[in-house]
Design a protein around this nucleic acid. Structure first.
Lengths: 236, 236
DNA sequence: GTCCGTAATTGGGTTACCCAGTTGGAGCTT
DNA sequence: AAGCTCCAACTGGGTAACCCAATTACGGAC
């Protein structure tokens, strides 16, 4: 079933088909037995494609952390990453963008947690790093704010202060994806400065070492954002 | 600066260095101007490596959705994915594992949100999908539970019911990483079944369409998990 | 100025080759 | 029989010279 020759399909590169086949090897249990893949030359003969194609496929999977290559040794399945395989195959298909609303919903959950943890753990220096973008917020004009990163920096500073690398990574990811969606253009200017003022209670709660107040403030901040998005959708 | 010849470095493949160079091209602004990368042959001569290496690097980036290849046309930077580049470069480096405690802290934030949203949006079929692993929990012996995925399935079913693909993806990721850390072996058997019973109030709140109760129950569930982890650390 | 055909260019893929590590077994030693 | 050494085969990493189909760019004809 996974031994037939690979034939070129318009719009689908051979290396993509190879990834599919590799995933199939795993799901069929042919690999998990010992965790070692057949060699490049083996698969080359088996699927009737050149080594280049095989290698490109494996390289992509290696970048995702699913496969590990040992020169001279072979290629191995990283058992702790097997669940990622299914997600990976889906990811290739759904290149689609995600609505800003969904990103904000996610950030409400993640960043309520970072705010609460930051309230528990932020050092004075980290508190200052959170406060600085807030000072810039009040110093700059609402119009100027639309073109800066003070908003993102505020959220990132909190994430860095929460003492959890996982959460820090998640926030960095979600923030950059939010920016990619170009949310600056979706929120009205007056709303914008008002939302910035929503940052203030968050900072206060963090400085006061009050985790629950920080969590609540952050959640309210995103709730306000969602409302402004609703109005923006309705008006425009 | 990004024109010097690429030299082999032990433990670092050339294609990995190529990814670094490509990212540099973007960050230096050489590409974003028109969104088109120099051709394979161009970069081959510029960096003194074979086309294979160039192509492997681009292919990996293409799988991540950052780059788009058009045969006969060239390779293009997907502007809406540019922020992913930074994340990508980090991802290659931090293969390091993360303490289970940090994963659970992150999941507390993310899954409190999925639980709340699921309470608002779960269809009857989705409620059933959440309830099923819970029934298995009470049906199986505590010892048997340690070797099944009912726990993970419960959390994943909630994520699928929350109607947010971003959150669903985050939970799938965090759950698989938690499993990779082998948490089954860290929690005592008696704690385990007790923690499973913590799932009950979450399901009840979701079925009752009570988002705040769902949020609270999920947070308490993870708080209980953390406590058991503390005891586990202290005793062993 | 517009249109069309040609030539150069681009990514996709193949084949043949070389290198440096790893692996595993044959054959020796103890 | 158990252990050791050493070498041959194998594995992934990388290079070079090709061929193909599709796109692009350009220049001449109209």
């Amino acid at each position: 079933m996974s031994d037939e020759a690979l034939i070129p399909v318009p719009g689908l590169r051979l290396s993509e088909q190879v990834i599919e086949r590799i995933a199939h090897l795993v799901e069929a249990g042919e690999v998990s037995r010992n965790g070692r893949f057949p060699s490049e030359r083996m698969l080359e003969a088996r699927w009737r494609v050149s080594r280049l194609v095989i290698r490109e496929g494996f390289r992509a999977l290696e970048m995702q952390g699913v496969v590990e290559s040992r020169p001279g040794g072979g290629r191995f399945l990283r058992m702790d990453r097997v669940p990622d395989l299914a997600r990976l195959r889906r990811a290739r298909l759904e290149t689609g963008r995600v609505p800003l609303l969904r990103l904000w919903e996610a950030r409400e959950g993640v960043e309520s947690q970072t705010a609460a943890l930051a309230a528990l753990r932020a050092t004075p220096a980290q508190q200052e790093a959170i406060a600085r973008p807030l000072r810039l917020t009040v110093a700059l004009s609402p119009e100027a704010l639309r073109h800066t990163d003070v908003n993102a920096e505020f959220h990132l500073a909190i994430a860095r202060a929460c003492g959890n690398p996982v959460l820090e990574e998640l926030v960095a990811d979600l923030v950059s994806r939010s920016q990619a969606e170009g949310f600056r253009h979706l929120v009205e200017a007056e709303d914008w400065s008002a939302l910035q003022s929503g940052h203030r209670p968050i900072l206060d709660a963090i400085v006061a070492h009050d985790p629950e107040a920080a969590r609540r403030s952050m959640a309210q901040h995103f709730a306000a954002l969602r409302h402004s998005l609703d109005r923006g959708d309705a008006s425009g």
